[in-house]
Design a protein around this nucleic acid. Structure first.
Lengths: 213, 213
DNA sequence: GCGGTTATGATGCAAGTGCATCGGAAAAGA
DNA sequence: TCTTTTCCGATGCACTTGCATCATAACCGC
């Protein structure tokens, strides 16, 4: 504990400083893991390749993470957090109150990871889902994240019901499940090349539209 | 070609017969691959483990498939075919004409791989989707299968429109995309432990119900 | 029967894996 | 300035991987 970051106080002369920011390094490695997964799948992730991708030595990777599984777990937590964060920010950032409909569709589009720069995230996410049965710890993170996202969508639906955009007789939890399922399914379809991102977001939009009627 | 199965005509005395049914062996190996993927993920699939799981020698595996990727490809084609087959059979097997609604929900439940014995299939399918970017050949199979499934659902929807169960103004292709997305999304959710198979099929059922109104 | 053909399972091999170890360099304390 | 402590990155190691090779064993037409 008490991990103070003392790095780079003085003028580090072109050499990497001795004491490095661990948190930053971890994130950097997590990004490298995601890039590798997105490029060649999860089974292509080796400590060496990760180190090379993150442009650090293998020893540094091992220092940051005790085992490979720890590293993968951190990477998953990283992108989980980023996804939830982005979604909630999208909501909180709207200074002018928007309609529940647009809020919903924007949030879900965010969650479906349809835009190009989220493609990698989609890959990583799916890779972890399909790897989950092999690691209970990964599975736990996935469950937790899904739980949070579900709660978020439920909240949005209830908000829509409060503003009378969404029929009050609908079961918010059920609708949230369906919406999340559509989003995830579209993610899969885009990733599998069955749909383009454009048609996918159109499908999503239409589904939300039908909900608000 | 002209691969006649002459195996096991005489009384094979406890020793494996010399000429073996290749097709059967391939299938057996494919099953072993699926079992391994379902149990421990795709990166746990090694030729040795597959051979052990299928209870054949490693040489036999190498004889059946020139490379590991060929093996995986065959396994994917195998389960793809099984999934489509099961779905179409579900439709064709109904001697008494059923309502489009029940046909749709049954077919989609089949495609969502929700029942317990399809769990492994779901795993395998998802593993391949997340592995697809690393192998164009796998991706091609996925696209083709998704295309077929999409056509199937479109056909069902049009059928429902013919029988006036489904409003004629709906775009069958679009609805099919949504339905498939819901099915796949639910597959993901069940696999990730976010939903139980029961709630998932309830969600699916409700979605179909709303379609037919 | 019997050579010829073919399938078989064991073994070899180079490359790659995750992880442990270690010499030495930088920071801290005197 | 000199020890001490911390920490980094390279190397080593035991193991697994996918694939190639090979002697052997079973079937075939003759």
């Amino acid at each position: 504990m008490m991990q103070v970051h003392r790095k780079r106080e003085a003028g580090e002369e072109q050499r990497v400083p001795k004491q490095v920011d661990y948190e930053e390094r971890r994130l950097r490695i997590a990004e490298a893991v995601c890039a590798l997964i997105a490029r060649s799948g999860m089974e292509a992730v080796s400590l060496r390749d990760v180190a090379a991708e993150a442009d650090v030595s293998m020893g540094a990777v091992q220092r940051c993470f005790r085992t490979k599984e720890d590293m993968l777990l951190f990477a998953l937590e990283h992108i989980s957090q980023r996804v939830s964060e982005r979604a909630t920010q999208r909501i909180a950032a709207t200074s002018t109150p928007q309609s529940a409909s647009t809020l919903l569709s924007h949030t879900l589009a965010e969650l479906a990871l349809l835009d190009e720069e989220s493609r990698a995230g989609a890959h990583v996410w799916l890779a972890f889902v399909s790897h989950a049965p092999a690691s209970e710890r990964l599975a736990a993170v996935l469950r937790e994240t899904y739980g949070k996202l579900h709660d978020l969508v439920v909240w949005l639906i209830r908000y829509g019901q409060d503003t009378q955009e969404i029929p009050p007789h609908l079961d918010a939890a059920q609708e949230a499940h369906t919406l999340l399922a559509v989003a995830d399914g579209l993610t899969v379809h885009v990733l599998a090349g069955h749909q383009s991102a454009e048609t996918a977001s159109a499908v999503l939009q239409r589904h939300v539209d039908r909900l608000v009627q």
